[in-house]
Amino acid sequence: KELVLVLYDYQEKSPREVTVKKGDILTLLNSTNKDWWKVEVDDRQGFIPAAYLKKL
């Protein structure tokens, strides 16, 4: 499984997104879309802008 580091706080703006904090380490589920990556946060799955994440 691939992990990503959150570079900036992000507040979800729709039900398909998730809220994260800078410094969080998340499981990356899908990065095929270059703009929005799907991650897992506390048993929730959702999207975050790829620019907010860095692969570890």
Rank of each mutant, 00 (worst) to 15 (best):
E17I: 03
V4A: 09
G46I: 11
D43R: 12
V41M: 10
E17Q: 12
L5C: 07
S14L: 08
V41E: 02
Q45S: 13
E17T: 06
W36M: 07
K54D: 07
E17F: 05
Q11T: 15
P49R: 04
L29W: 05
L28A: 03
Y8P: 00
P49D: 02
D9F: 03
F47G: 02
Y52R: 04
D43M: 10
L53E: 01
Q11D: 15
K54M: 13
G46S: 04
V20D: 00
D9Y: 04
R44D: 04
K1T: 14
I25L: 07
L56V: 11
E17P: 06
W36Q: 03
N33T: 06
S14C: 07
I25F: 05
S14P: 05
D42G: 15
Y10E: 00
A50R: 13
N33R: 12
G46Y: 10
V6Q: 00
T32Y: 10
W36H: 04
D24W: 15
Y8E: 14
D43I: 08
L29G: 01
L5Q: 10
V41H: 09
S14K: 08
W36V: 05
L53I: 07
G46R: 05
V4C: 09
K22V: 06
K1W: 13
V41D: 07
N33F: 08
K54R: 12
K38C: 09
Y8D: 09
G23Q: 02
K13H: 09
A51Y: 15
E2M: 14
E40K: 11
K21R: 12
T27C: 09
E17C: 05
K13R: 13
K38W: 13
L56D: 03
V18K: 02
Q45F: 08
D35E: 14
L5E: 12
K22Y: 05
P15E: 14
L26S: 01
V18H: 03
V18Q: 02
S14V: 05
K21N: 08
K21T: 10
L56N: 03
W37V: 02
L7Y: 02
D9K: 03
D43F: 09
K22L: 05
E12L: 12
D24I: 06
A51E: 13
K54W: 10
K54V: 14
V4Y: 06
A51F: 14
I25P: 00
L26E: 00
F47D: 04
L28S: 02
K34F: 08
F47P: 00
L3T: 08
A50H: 04
R16K: 14
I48T: 09
A50L: 02
V4N: 00
K22C: 07
D42S: 13
L56M: 09
W36P: 01
T19P: 02
K1V: 14
L28F: 03
L28W: 01
P15K: 09
K54H: 12
S31V: 05
V20S: 03
D42V: 12
L5T: 06
V20R: 01
T32G: 11
I48G: 01
V20W: 04
P49S: 03
L5V: 11
V39R: 00
E12V: 07
V6M: 02
V39E: 00
V41L: 11
V4Q: 00
Q11S: 15
L26W: 06
L56G: 03
Y8I: 09
I25D: 00
V4E: 00
R16A: 12
V18G: 02
V18D: 01
W36S: 04
K13D: 06
I25M: 06
K55W: 07
F47N: 04
L28R: 01
T19N: 05
K1E: 09
V20E: 00
L26R: 03
K38F: 15
F47S: 03
G46Q: 05
G23V: 01
Y10L: 01
K55H: 09
D43T: 11
N30A: 10
R16C: 14
K1F: 10
K34A: 15
D9Q: 04
P49Q: 04
R44T: 06
E17M: 04
T27Y: 12
R16Q: 13
I25Q: 04
N33D: 15
A51K: 14
V41Y: 09
V6D: 00
T19H: 05
D43V: 09
G46E: 07
Q45T: 14
P49Y: 03
K1H: 11
L56R: 03
W36I: 04
E40N: 06
V39Y: 00
V39A: 02
L5Y: 10
N30D: 14
R44P: 00
P49W: 03
N33Y: 08
V18N: 02
K13Q: 15
L53A: 11
R16L: 14
Y52V: 14
K34R: 10
P49G: 02
L29F: 03
L53V: 13
D35G: 10
T27N: 12
D42P: 09
Y52C: 08
Y8H: 15
P15Q: 10
